[in-house]
């Protein structure tokens, strides 16, 4: 309760305007002026502050919004996703303004389907989206509740609705992120998954203004899932495709991940990593992990562990040695060589 919204008046003597209002408070205290006079000064100064909105510090919500967009932009690749998120934000803002002007405003149905392979950034984007929706005031909390079939579907009659409602309750004011959403329709007609869908759909209606549901999963499976449940398509008007990352993007992700962990890799290690990533792309049936940031993370974390194993017990390690990932660390376990 210590943090108050100070958006109207910059605290303590910041800039000419701040000092002017501070001044009137001081005079009021010293008995040099009346309350009425102070209020008049205040009215004039806030009227001026509103006329030149960029003079004071931005509202904290705006700052948070900028931060969220920055974070979004810092994600590697995902250009189409970024564009869509911006579109969405613009849409919300404009619909609001239209409503204020008394124009017909589209209802804001923000339930979404995220389609893409694992590790293509669906959860990350959902989390950022939650913050953006919070900053724009659509969602109160903007938090993300992740769940999957097992969290929603129960084991006996009546259990499912109860479990699903529990998850919904947790997600109110934020985003309910259903991973592998298609799995809800897995068991056929008699499966409780159907009940979970029904409960979810009902909650989406009941809590229109305080819940965003995101169903995420593999592209094809999600497509089938939506087609087999005709009512769902219209309830999830926003469908975002998460393409696999390209090899270059994966390498960039690797660099970022290493940087964040304060490691560097030698050019040879880089080459090995590249080859291993390429290898995954060449697998017959198209490895679903091939365009996948999680694959990169796993490879890197493995390399970090192997570097540790290589270094442990050695005396006099330099800072550079502690930071460097070499080709041997990055190499595939089975062959122990640089080739994947």
């Amino acid at each position: 309760m210590a943090r108050f919204d100070r958006r109207r008046i910059p605290s303590g003597g910041l800039g000419p305007k701040g000092s002017k209002t501070e001044d009137i408070f001081g005079r009021l205290e010293r008995g040099e002026t009346t309350v009425g006079e102070a209020l008049r000064v205040l009215r004039l100064s806030t009227a001026r502050a509103e006329a030149e909105p960029d003079s004071g510090a931005g509202t904290s919500a705006e700052a948070r919004l900028d931060e969220s967009f920055e974070e979004l932009d810092s994600l590697v690749g995902l250009d189409s996703v970024k564009r869509l998120v911006r579109e969405l934000h613009a849409f919300i803002v404009i619909q609001r303004q239209r409503a204020r002007e008394g124009l017909a405003a589209e209802p804001m149905v923000l339930h979404m389907v995220f389609k893409g392979n694992p590790g293509t950034g669906k959860t990350t984007v959902a989390r950022i989206l939650g913050r953006i929706l919070k900053s724009t005031g659509v969602l109160q909390k903007g938090h993300l509740v992740e769940c999957e079939r097992a969290d929603l579907v129960g084991e006996y009659i009546g259990h499912t609705a109860q479990k699903t409602r529990e998850q919904i309750r947790k997600a109110l004011g934020g985003i309910l992120f259903v991973d592998e959403g298609y799995a809800l329709a897995r068991g056929g007609e008699k499966d409780f998954g159907k009940e979970a869908i029904d409960t979810l759909v009902k909650a989406m209606e009941d809590h229109k203004d305080e819940l965003v549901v995101i169903l995420a999963g593999y592209r094809n499976e999600m497509q089938q899932f939506l087609e087999s449940n005709p009512g769902l398509q219209s309830r999830f008007p926003i469908q975002i495709d998460f393409p696999d990352f390209t090899l270059e993007e994966l390498m960039k992700i690797a660099d970022l991940m290493l940087q964040k962990r304060q490691y560097t890799m030698t050019p040879e290690a880089r080459r090995v990593l590249r080859e291993r990533l390429l290898h995954h792309r060449r697998l017959p049936y198209g490895d679903e992990n091939a365009g996948n940031a999680r694959l990169v993370r796993n490879l890197i974390e493995k390399a970090i562990r192997r570097q540790a194993l290589r270094l442990v017990g050695r005396p006099n390690l330099s800072r550079a040695e502690l930071m460097t990932i070499q080709a041997v660390d990055m190499a595939d376990d089975e062959t122990g060589k640089g080739k994947a």
Binding site: F4, D5, R6, R7, R8, I9, T21, I24, F25, G26, L28, E29, V35, A38, L39, L42, T46
Partner: peptide, 12 residues
């Protein structure tokens, strides 16, 4: 003083 604080809080 209390009144000055009051007007300050009006502002925010």
């Amino acid at each position: 003083r209390a009144m000055a604080d009051t007007i300050r809080s009006v502002a925010r």
